[in-house]
Nucleic acid binder design. Structure first.
Lengths: 213, 213
DNA sequence: ATATTAAGTGGACGAAGATTCCGTTTACTG
DNA sequence: CAGTAAACGGAATCTTCGTCCACTTAATAT
């Protein structure tokens, strides 16, 4: 996938950042366009990072990523001031897919089935994207003030499917989306999780979630 | 496997590694007793670590702990070859308390109440001992082969209260102690957990856990 | 007491990684 | 083509982990 869906790029003005200006020149008009080599390097770094993360896990060093991308450390840090920025760039597409899946589930399925199916998608996703969830968790742990876009996007999806089920009267109303994300996300980032175990636990959580008839 | 019941609280032994020469070796006969300064330093390091962890959180450096204990880095590493060994030593008492609480709950309460109460204790404990759970999780993530005694002790407690309820027919039988620990522990190590949220989620988990009448 | 000796000590040291700094290069613009 | 700001890259710095080893000391033997 080289040219992916044009993700609505945001002004990117959260703290310190403005790092992930994704190659596309926003026609502000007042300043120069983004240089072509910068665009190219940005892309190469993301690709290299994806490869290295897949290969070495989440303890890959920044310099090794820079080296594989064929750029210097300074260049990497110019584009991604913090490690988490790079991680977010790598997994942006996946997160977007999850969010879209939540929306289609809500649109196409009955409320309870939408909730169940999307949680199941999330679970299967987690099993493959442990690196991402781990990194996310760790940066958030280190600095809870940090607003992580991908995190918020996922939280929105949790809220979407849950509130949809709550409005339909099939899910208990004393918990909210971030509660549920804490529970399911926490279990999915557990280092010991294996496939069948996740399904068992998810079934139990769904039983606890369903409104008692 | 039977495990030796640790009668004394502060024998100067090493954890981890392969040398599981545990506790006060009674009649090895051939070697010297533990030197008094070694014993003293062991204790001072644990005390210093407790203070530093409480003060700086889990990202406290080993050298800063060594310095506060008034010993060199080498001494610290002699006593605690890995960071997790130190963490376990610091929180050993707390873990033991939890385990004892599980046993008394099972002894003194009805099965379901024992399960509920102990999970609640675990939750309240987690809120205060975030450092411990985080460290535990991280070392386990880095090396899943590692056998961590405190982790096993907690897992045993989960299994105890759960299986007790299952035998009494009040808890679903398709999950086991480590499943439950993954779920509840995962949620408790979440960086965003706050008091009321934990209680809400725990109530839900208990609903999902209770056998449907 | 004193000598012996193995265990214990502490800080210097090297590896490794994160992040910054800055002289040089390069792609746009006029 | 020249001017310029942006981007580059890698050397330099900083921090922490963990090891090593020459020296010290407490327990034991004499």
């Amino acid at each position: 996938m080289l040219r992916d869906v044009t993700i609505p790029l945001e002004p990117a003005e959260h703290l310190g950042g403005s790092a992930t200006n994704d190659g596309v020149d926003g026609d502000d008009g007042s300043h120069r366009a983004v240089r072509s080599d910068a665009q190219r390097n940005h892309h190469r770094i993301v690709v290299a990072a994806r490869e290295v993360f897949a290969l070495q896990g989440s303890d890959a060093s920044m310099v090794s990523i820079a080296h594989r991308a064929g750029v210097g450390a300074g260049t990497l840090y110019r584009h991604f001031p913090h490690r988490i920025d790079l991680v977010e760039a790598v997994y942006r597409v996946d997160v977007e897919e999850l969010a879209v899946a939540a929306e289609s589930a809500v649109r196409d399925l009955a409320p309870w089935e939408a909730l169940r199916d999307w949680l199941d998608s999330f679970l299967r996703y987690s099993l493959g994207k442990r690196v991402f969830l781990t990194e996310l968790r760790e940066s958030f742990e280190k600095n809870p003030e940090l607003k992580l876009r991908s995190r918020e996007r996922v939280e929105q999806s949790f809220a979407l499917v849950l509130e949809n089920a709550q409005r339909a009267g099939v899910a208990r109303t004393d918990i909210d989306g971030s509660d549920l994300m804490l529970l399911v996300g926490g279990m999915c980032t557990g280092p010991t999780l294996v496939g069948a175990q996740g399904e068992r636990l998810l079934a139990m959580v769904l039983d606890g979630l369903r409104v008692t008839p």
